[in-house]
C-alpha cells in the first residue's frame, strides 16, 4: 500500500500548491517585499534564504496571513492556495491557518501539558469526535514529529519542561495535529544546538512525504541539506528561485553568488 501512495505522490509532485504573483508588502511606509513571484510545489521542501532583514520571514508570514495580526502591515498582489486567493475577503484566516500550519523561530510551547499542546489545534478546529480520537491524533502527531518515544510517559507534564530541541519538535507535532497541507517553518533551528538541529532536519525531510514544507533559514548549508527548491531574497526582492542544487552550484545572479560565497550577508 505504501508503494501505491508513493506512486500517487509522484503524480502530485508537479502540482503547484501555492502560487504567488506580484506580491508587495508594506509595513507602514516601508516597502518590505517588492513584486515577488514564487511557486510552491506540493511534497517538496522549499527554502527561503537571504541575509537578515531581506524579507524572507515577512514573505513566509504572508502565506498564512500571519501578517494580519500586525496593524500596519499591508499585502498587495495575489497568493493562491490550490487555486483560491487567500487574500479574498471571503476567506477566513482561521480556516486558512488550519490548512497552512506554522512553526516558529523560537520554540513556543504553550504553558500547558504536552498532551494539551498537541491537542490544542484539533480541539479548536473540532477534528476529534471523542476522547479516543483525540488521543489517536495526539499520538500520531507526536510520532510524526519523532517525539512519541520521549514524551509518551510524560504527556501530562508541562511542555515548557522539555529541552529546546524537544520543544521545537513538540511545536511541529502541534502544527501537524491540525492536519495542515502546507507547513511553514520560520528558522526552526536557529535557537537549537547542532544535535537538535540535525534531528529537526531529518524530521523535515520525513515531513516532505505528506506536506509541502516552506522553510526560512539563514544557514545555506541547512538549505542545501533539506530543500529541493531554493529562493534567494535580497533587500525585499526575490533575486533567484530554482532547484536547490542549481542555485548553490551555478547561481545565475551575481548577488546570489556573492551571498553564497560569503561576500554579502
Amino acid at each position: 500500500m505504501n508503494d501505491m501512495r508513493a506512486v500517487e505522490r509522484d503524480v502530485d509532485t508537479n502540482d503547484l500548491k501555492i502560487t504567488a504573483r506580484g506580491v508587495d508588502v508594506f509595513y507602514g511606509d516601508t516597502h518590505a517585499i517588492k513584486d515577488v513571484d514564487v511557486d510552491i510545489v506540493d511534497n517538496t521542501v522549499t527554502a527561503f534564504i537571504g541575509p537578515s532583514g531581506c524579507g524572507k520571514s515577512t514573505f513566509l508570514r504572508c502565506l498564512n496571513r500571519m501578517n494580519d495580526t500586525i496593524d500596519v502591515a499591508r499585502v498587495e498582489g495575489s497568493i493562491m492556495l490550490d487555486g483560491e486567493d487567500i487574500y479574498d475577503p471571503k476567506v477566513d484566516p482561521v480556516q486558512l491557518r488550519a490548512k497552512v500550519g506554522m512553526v516558529f523561530q523560537k520554540p513556543n510551547p504553550f504553558p500547558k501539558s504536552i498532551y494539551d499542546n498537541v491537542a490544542y489545534g484539533p480541539r479548536i478546529h473540532g477534528l476529534a469526535k471523542d476522547k479516543a480520537a483525540l488521543d489517536e491524533i495526539v499520538e500520531k502527531s507526536l510520532r510524526r514529529a519523532a517525539l512519541w518515544d520521549e514524551a509518551k510517559d510524560r504527556l501530562d507534564q508541562p511542555g515548557t519542561g522539555l529541552s529546546g530541541g524537544q520543544q521545537q519538535r513538540l511545536c511541529i507535532a502541534r502544527a501537524v495535529a491540525t492536519n495542515p497541507e502546507v507547513l511553514l517553518m520560520d528558522e526552526p533551528c536557529s535557537a537549537l544546538d547542532p544535535i537538535a538541529t540535525a534531528q529537526i532536519e531529518e524530521l523535515i525531510d520525513e515531513l516532505r512525504s505528506r506536506y509541502s514544507v516552506v522553510i526560512v533559514t539563514h544557514s545555506m548549508q541547512q538549505a542545501a541539506r533539506v530543500s529541493q527548491k531554493t529562493a534567494f531574497f535580497h533587500l525585499g526582492e526575490l533575486v533567484e528561485f530554482g532547484e536547490t542544487g542549481h542555485i548553490f552550484t551555478n547561481p545565475s545572479d551575481p548577488r546570489t553568488e556573492s551571498y553564497i560565497t560569503g561576500r554579502i550577508g
Binding site: K90, Q95, K99, E181
Partner: peptide, 14 residues
C-alpha cells in the same frame, strides 16, 4: 492529510 478539503472561500459551520 492532503485530501482535497473544503474550499477556503466557503466558511464551514464550525
Amino acid at each position: 492529510p492532503t485530501a482535497p478539503t473544503s474550499s477556503l472561500l466557503k466558511q464551514d459551520d464550525r
